[in-house]
Simulated assay, not measured.
Amino acid sequence: MVGRLLWRGMLAGLIAACVAAVFALLFAEPQIDRAIAVEAAHRMPGMAQEMEWVSRGVQKTAGLFTALAVYGAGVGGLLALAFAYAYGRIGQVGPRTLALLLAVLAFVVIVLVPAIKYPPTPPAVGQHETVKLRTAAFFAMIALSLVAAMVAAQVRRAVAVRWNPVDALVAAVACYALLASGVALLLPVVDEVPGDFGATLLWNFRLASLGAQALFWIVAGWLFGRFALPVLRERHG
């Protein structure tokens, strides 16, 4: 059964990635073009322009769809594995509800909370010398957010024996919030937005980036729930 769920999860992720790519093309890529224009306008006279290995046109079309398709298929497979583990272990939650719930939780833990500490930034924001530090800090935030979520899940399981489900859920959420906040305080601060960079442009880019991610996870969870339902019906039938 896991194998059948796996390829369905990858298919759901692939479709969701295409939907998210269209959204990004319409809303995020124009902000990137504007940010690149800002960077070009602030380039010092005589400063050599960096060599462009892949043209901007390819980056925001074929490159965008290819990258998101690979990402979507991989993440969709992981969503299917998480679903296979969680199904039947979280109360009387139906498969479609569980798939969507897992997708929303993944968005919060993997995307939203790390973005609060390290929000997405367009080109012309950030210094080249700090790329490695910023990348390492961002992925560390994602990893530690996942660890905090797993600890919170164990707390919920431990207190659910004596507490009612709502109180156990509140305890888990509070535990995750405290751990994630502590991790965010310990990780290095990255504040490299130039003072003259447009606040509206920065806000629109961040909103579009998070919107594309939210759309991906919602569509992936919704589709996978529908794709998984026939498999589970055959198993119980």
Rank of each mutant, 00 (worst) to 15 (best):
D196S: 12
W163Y: 15
L133H: 11
H42K: 15
R226W: 11
H128R: 09
Q213S: 15
L232I: 13
P188H: 06
V219K: 02
I32Q: 04
A62K: 02
R56E: 14
E129D: 12
L25W: 14
L133K: 10
P114N: 06
V155E: 03
W7Y: 14
A20L: 08
S209F: 07
V155Y: 01
A67F: 13
A41T: 05
M51Q: 13
H42V: 04
Q213T: 05
L201Q: 12
V108K: 05
A73S: 12
L64R: 13
D167F: 14
S145D: 04
C18M: 14
V93D: 00
A73G: 13
G46S: 11
R157M: 13
V161P: 00
A48R: 11
W53L: 15
V38G: 00
L79Q: 12
A62R: 09
I32K: 03
F224C: 02
V108D: 00
V159L: 04
A180F: 06
A212K: 05
V2P: 01
L6Y: 07
A17G: 04
A184W: 07
A17I: 05
T66V: 15
Q49V: 07
A160D: 02
M10L: 09
M141Q: 13
W217N: 00
F197W: 11
V159N: 00
I36H: 05
V173A: 15
A228L: 10
W163M: 15
L68C: 03
G46D: 10
G13K: 04
G225L: 02
P119I: 06
F224W: 02
A48F: 06
V2T: 14
V125W: 00
V219Y: 01
A184N: 12
D33T: 10
L68W: 14
G211I: 05
R226P: 00
L68F: 15
V166H: 12
Y85F: 13
E29N: 12
A24P: 07
A208F: 04
L5C: 02
V70S: 03
E29R: 14
A99H: 08
P119M: 03
Q213G: 07
R56I: 04
Q92I: 08
A106C: 07
A99I: 08
R157E: 15
G211K: 09
L169M: 12
W222G: 01
E192M: 09
L169R: 07
L232Y: 07
M141S: 08
C175M: 14
G76E: 02
P165V: 12
R34H: 13
V183C: 10
A172F: 01
H236V: 14
L210D: 04
A62I: 12
D167Y: 15
K117T: 12
G63K: 08
M10P: 01
G221P: 01
P114K: 09
L187R: 09
A69C: 13
A115R: 02
V108I: 15
A37L: 06
Q49P: 00
L201Y: 01
V113D: 03
R157C: 10
V38R: 02
T121C: 08
C18Q: 14
P122A: 06
G221E: 06
R206F: 03
A37S: 10
V151Y: 03
V75S: 09
V111G: 01
L178F: 12
A208D: 00
L26D: 01
A12W: 03
R156H: 05
A214T: 05
L112A: 13
